[in-house]
C-alpha cells in the first residue's frame, strides 16, 4: 500500500519550472531513490514534501491525508523527517541537544513546567534522553555526545543529522544526499545505517543521491528526474538500461 503519493505536482518560480506535473508513489516500508542531473528538481521535491515550499499545483497525500500546503512543523508532526543537502545542524548545540531537539514533537513541556523542572518536565527529559541514547548507540556516536556539533568532522555531522531526524521517530525519512562528500568507508557506514533504518526500524525512506553505486546497491525503486519532470521509474536494473536516463546523464550520441 502507498504511504506517500504525489499527484501531478508542479512548482514554478516565476518563469522557471522546478517541478512539472510529477507523479510519484512510495510504498510503505520502501526504499525509494530519486536521482537526476543537477537542477533536476530533486531538492525542490523534498522541500515540497516537507512543507518548506508550497507547490504551485498538485497534491501530496500521506496515507489518505492531504498534506499539500501544510507548514513544515505541522508536517513533521505527521511523521515526516528529513536531512539536508548542506548540513543544517544547530552548530552551537551539543550532539545530545541536537538529538533532543529532534524529539521536540514528542515532548510536551512548555515554559511553565519547564521553568519548574520538576515532575512531568523532569520525567520527560529523562525519558527522551533514554530514547536519544538508543539512537546514539545505533549510530555509534557515543564519544561525541556532549561535543558541540560545529566542532565535529563532516562525516560525523552527517551522522548526527541522520540521528536528529531519527529522533523524531518518523514514518518517512527524506534523506537529501546522505553520502555526499564522504570517503569510501564513511559511505559504506552510511549505507549500512540507511539499510538498518529501513529494515530494522521499518522506516520508509526516500533518498536523493548522486552516488550511483549506493543508489543501485540499496534502492528498491529509482525515480529519475530531469528538468523537473519524471523521465523514468523502476528497479535499479531497469534504470541502468533505460535509454532516456543515459541520455539525460551523458547526452545524445
Amino acid at each position: 500500500m502507498e504511504l506517500l503519493e504525489v499527484q501531478s505536482l508542479s512548482l514554478r518560480f516565476g518563469g522557471i519550472v522546478a517541478l512539472a506535473d510529477l507523479n510519484i508513489k512510495v510504498r510503505e516500508g520502501g526504499l525509494h531513490a530519486v536521482i537526476g542531473p543537477n537542477g533536476a528538481g530533486k531538492t525542490s521535491l523534498f522541500n515540497c514534501l516537507s512543507g518548506v515550499y508550497r507547490p504551485t499545483t498538485g497534491n501530496i497525500f500521506l496515507k489518505d491525508r492531504e498534506i499539500t500546503g501544510m507548514k513544515p512543523h505541522q508536517i513533521s508532526r505527521l511523521g515526516i523527517a528529513r536531512t539536508f543537502q548542506n548540513i543544517e545542524l544547530f552548530a552551537n548545540m551539543t550532539v545530545m541537544d541536537n538529538l533532543l531537539l529532534g524529539r521536540h514533537v514528542h515532548m510536551k513541556t512548555g515554559p511553565f513546567s519547564g521553568a519548574l523542572f520538576y515532575g512531568r518536565a523532569l520525567t520527560e527529559e529523562v525519558h527522551c534522553r533514554l530514547k536519544v541514547e538508543e539512537i546514539i548507540d545505533f549510530l555509534e556516536i557515543e564519544k561525541v555526545r556532549k561535543k558541540p556539533v560545529g566542532s565535529l568532522p563532516y562525516g560525523i555531522q552527517k551522522r548526527v543529522e541522520l540521528g536528529r531526524a531519527l529522533a523524531m521517530q518518523p514514518n518517512i525519512l527524506l534523506l537529501d544526499e546522505p553520502v555526499a562528500g564522504m570517503n569510501v568507508e564513511e559511505t559504506e557506514d552510511m549505507a549500512r545505517f540507511i539499510l538498518d533504518i529501513n529494515e530494522e526500524l521499518g522506516v520508509t525512506i526516500i533518498m536523493v543521491e548522486h552516488d550511483m553505486g549506493v543508489v543501485m546497491d540499496i534502492a528498491e525503486i529509482v525515480t529519475v528526474l530531469d528538468f523537473g519532470a519524471k523521465i523514468a521509474e523502476g528497479s535499479p536494473q531497469e534504470i541502468q538500461a533505460n535509454n532516456r536516463v543515459i541520455e539525460a546523464y551523458l547526452g545524445q550520441e
Partner: peptide, 30 residues
C-alpha cells in the same frame, strides 16, 4: 527558572531558531 527553561524543550527550540530557523521548523518547532 530561566536556566530550567533553557535546558528543556522550550530552550532548545529557542537556540535551534537562532542557529537554523528553517531546520528548526522542519524538526517541528513552530
Amino acid at each position: 527558572t530561566a536556566s530550567n527553561i533553557i535546558r528543556t524543550r522550550v530552550g532548545r527550540a529557542f537556540v535551534a531558531i537562532r542557529d537554523r530557523d528553517i531546520a528548526a521548523e522542519v524538526m517541528g518547532v513552530d
